[in-house]
Amino acid sequence: MSAAGKSGLVSKTLAVLLKDLRSELRTRYAICAIIMFAVVTVVAVGFATGGITLEKDLQGILLWLVIYFASMAGIGQSFIKEEENRTSLALRLFAYPPSVYGGKYLFNLMLLFVLEIIVVPLFAMLVGLQVKCYVLFFSVLILGTIGLAGTTTIIAAIISKTSTKGVLFAVLSFPLILPLLIMAILLKRLGGVAGVNFLCSSNVCLRIFTFRLCLE
């Protein structure tokens, strides 16, 4: 840790991120899964609620549910992939645990942002999205995504070592993500970002810390 110093940490984080981006561009597995899932869900929601103008609270709830379940479909793969290709050991030899986590975290964050760029306009078109305050809406969306990616990344790392991967991912991440999800949904009523802000910052710090301990 001390030998390479901070610059090594950052460059290795970026190297893990680049590696993931490159392998993703080759297969396009995660991005396809996540976007297809989200598009199908949005279309289903739009079809089911066709003709009905939804309340504002309900729109927020449905949007977060779509994003949450789409992220379940894609992010769970990020560490399982390493186990299946038997590259996780090489990754551990190559980089410090924080940079593995950081690289995967940044990759999943980018994945979720790409997803949202596609899903939010689609949702606005098919289901309808009345936004009162754009600054608040986008800050909640961004902060919520940061928290979502942080939690699901570390759960993906945990479940990649277990035997029943797919089921356990949903079981473990759902209760942990629920406070964040509920805050994001309630935020319109509360009119502030303090809750999510607090959760995100504490989540990300502690998650990086525990991840290091886990792999060391």
Partner: peptide, 28 residues
Amino acid sequence: AYFSLRSAVSDPVKRANLSAVYSLLGFI
């Protein structure tokens, strides 16, 4: 969910590592 994680891993060392990390996350 913590207990279902524990029951999903059979190797005791691995189970200890994973559930310790989960207990930290769960406590937050």
